[in-house]
Design a protein around this nucleic acid. Structure first.
Length: 566
RNA sequence: UACCCCGUGGUGUAAUGGUAACACAGGAGAUUUUGGAUCUCUUAUUCAAGGUUCGAAUCCUUGCGGGGUAGCCA
């Protein structure tokens, strides 16, 4: 066991406990070989990250007697595309994992898989069925009633072999024939009622082209692919629990397999305020309810990447949620906690005013510009300092001023005093409004004696410190304020069977503003993280930012100790 | 109303027959040129009933509750 595994051994989840016992018993020569096996039919989401962290994490924990394969489960050509293969590889790499040379495709095994099927036929464990899909469904029985045997169930091995060869040769149309495993039509487990293991599909495959017109089913291909690759532990989500007996049946029924893997299942990740099923995510994209798979509001890996979540934060989150068989619902704020925790250490600070109010310092010389020195990150002195321009006309955030303050508000109010961070204290002398009564300007005076953190003398203690931006030097920057995608914790649950989850979409999930930001922001590289002080973490959009004109996505808000009471 | 899996603070997990604990969330305070961060304190937990045992969250039984399963999808 490696050091990390040893360190974590204080409390292992049920899967790791099982694996530790296998290693201790010397099973598989102490090797731990796992795999992450996505079907390339869509984009990966945060739920997949849980599986990726488990499988690749295990491989790291047991190094060097371990490896984790990336295997594309591409057994259904009608749904799969190269585009997805590429995005999946990008996402796994971004999460910080490396499959090395261990990149595989189930389609690599089509020939071997065909051979195993012939072997099953010879053993009398598989047969060609001529029934229609409807007939197969009807004779499968129900949850409470056993199925009945197909009239073709007892064909001779020779006939089955010939028919199966003719299926491969393309002599039959889609749906005319299938190959079925011969197990038990009365099993209480539906998966054992002679499951279909090969179907005819006249379809172009993204890797094998037109070489095949019969394709193996997942239930057949998966255990055998695992065995062929020497996988020791095949870990999947709970909905495959009922497939395990079939998995084991195949491992035990096929001779000549190089490995003897076993399957274990764990609960998938559910997160509040989002949906995770591929179907629903597709709906959001297709109906234009979000701007694509990588919309920063999406729970896809590409979405959260663009939102500004970091790989380290995702990994920490996946570790924190644990691994059980309980179908839990994890709070979004746990994810956000880990995002803030990581970004707090690394994001450079900058002053940004999202919703500006102009402030004029009436006793500050006109035309004068000075520079104040501010730390780039108070959490890390090594990040250095920068110069921020300061002059007579400034912007502060609308949220930092209240004309008639509520209880507990200690920012700027008429006649009140606040500190401009790293500059000096100001007092609001006058509120200027337009004809409609909107505030257009605050006229304030500053106190030169309060520079460098010196407290004002002879007046009330200044409780508030706010950020600011010098008007003349401020850059106008597009900022996208993202919020929860849905207004309820479980949109699909709330919508019910026939309901439409999109009714719970948050109309305020995206607000775009033009912010006033200190000029240093213009050099922000696309794909870099910042903390807009007192506001939140923001990410320079890697797609839409121009060099010298970044566009920011709000990753997550800062925690705010001051919450307006309704 | 068949079979399988699962029930521990609000949420997620730990305790593997021997003091029910940790993180997030909530609350209070200290500190702070971010109402952030940090630090301290704090609220709150074994689905129910029986049984086994000196001792049960843990083992057994029953009940209740939740999830899953009838694709030629994965």
């Amino acid at each position: 066991m490696s050091e990390t595994a040893l360190a974590a051994s204080a409390s292992l989840d049920f899967i790791r406990e099982m694996i530790a016992a296998d290693v201790a018993a010397g099973r598989n020569g102490g090797q731990v070989i796992t795999r992450f096996p996505p079907e390339p039919n869509g984009y990966l989401h945060i739920g997949h990250a849980k599986s990726i962290c488990l499988n690749f994490g295990l491989s790291q924990e047991y190094a060097p007697n371990s490896r984790c394969h990336l295997r594309f489960d591409d057994t259904n050509p009608t749904k799969e595309e190269v585009e997805y293969v590429e995005s999946i590889m990008e996402d796994v790499k971004w999460l910080g994992f490396d499959w090395g040379n261990n990149l595989f495709y189930a389609s690599d095994y089509f020939e071997k898989l065909y051979g195993f099927a012939v072997q099953l036929i010879e053993k009398g464990l598989a047969y060609v069925d001529d029934q229609t899909p409807e007939q197969i469904r009807e004779t499968r029985g129900t949850l409470t009633a056993p199925g009945t045997a197909s009239p073709f169930r007892d064909r001779s091995a020779a006939e089955n072999k010939e028919l199966f060869a003719r299926m491969r040769a393309g002599e039959f149309k889609n749906g005319e024939k299938v190959l079925r495993a011969k197990i038990d039509m009365a099993s209480p487990n539906m998966n054992l009622r002679d499951p279909v293991i090969y179907r005819i599909m006249q379809a172009h495959h993204h890797r094998t082209g037109d070489a095949w017109c019969i394709y193996p089913m997942y239930d057949y291909a998966h255990p055998l692919s695992d065995a062929l690759e020497g996988i020791t532990h095949s870990l999947c989500t709970l909905e495959f629990e009922h497939h395990r007996p079939l998995y084991e049946w195949l491992i035990n029924s096929v001779d000549g397999l190089p490995g003897a893997p076993y399957q274990r299942e764990f609960a998938r990740l559910n997160l509040t305020y989002t949906v995770m099923s591929k179907r629903k995510l597709l709906r959001l994209v297709k109906d234009g309810l979000v701007h694509g798979w990588d919309d920063p509001r999406m729970p896809t890996i590409s979405g959260i990447r663009r939102r500004g979540y970091t790989p380290a934060a995702i990994r920490a989150f996946c570790k924190a949620i644990g691994l059980t068989k309980y179908p839990s619902l994890t709070e979004l704020n746990l994810l956000e906690h880990h995002v803030r925790e990581d970004l707090n250490k690394h994001a450079l600070r900058v002053y940004a005013v999202l919703k500006p109010i102009k402030v004029v310092l009436t006793n500050y010389p006109e035309g004068q510009v000075e520079h104040v020195e501010v730390p780039n990150n108070p959490e890390n002195e090594a990040d250095g300092k920068r110069q921020v321009p300061l002059s007579r006309e400034l912007y502060i955030d609308a949220a930092d001023f209240m004309e008639t303050p509520v209880q507990g508000f200690h920012r700027l109010v008429p006649g009140g005093e606040v500190r401009l961070k790293y500059a000096f204290c100001i007092i609001c002398q006058e509120v200027i409004k337009d004809a409609q009564g909107n505030i257009v300007e605050l006229r304030c005076t500053y106190d030169d004696a309060t520079r460098h953190g010196v407290k004002p003398v002879g007046r009330a203690k200044v409780k508030g410190t706010i950020h600011w931006v010098s008007a003349a030097q401020a850059a106008d920057i597009e900022v996208r304020l993202y919020d929860k995608l849905f207004t309820v914790e479980q949109p699909d649950e709330q919508a019910g069977e026939d309901g439409d989850f999109t009714q719970f979409l948050n109309p305020g999930s995206l607000e775009t503003v033009t912010a006033k930001i200190e000029p240093s922001i213009l050099s922000a590289k696309p794909g870099s993280h910042y903390q807009f002080e007192r506001v939140g973490y923001f990410f320079a959009d890697p797609k839409d930012s121009q060099l010298g004109q970044p566009i920011f996505n709000r990753t997550v808000q800062l925690k705010d100790g001051f919450v307006l009471k309704k």
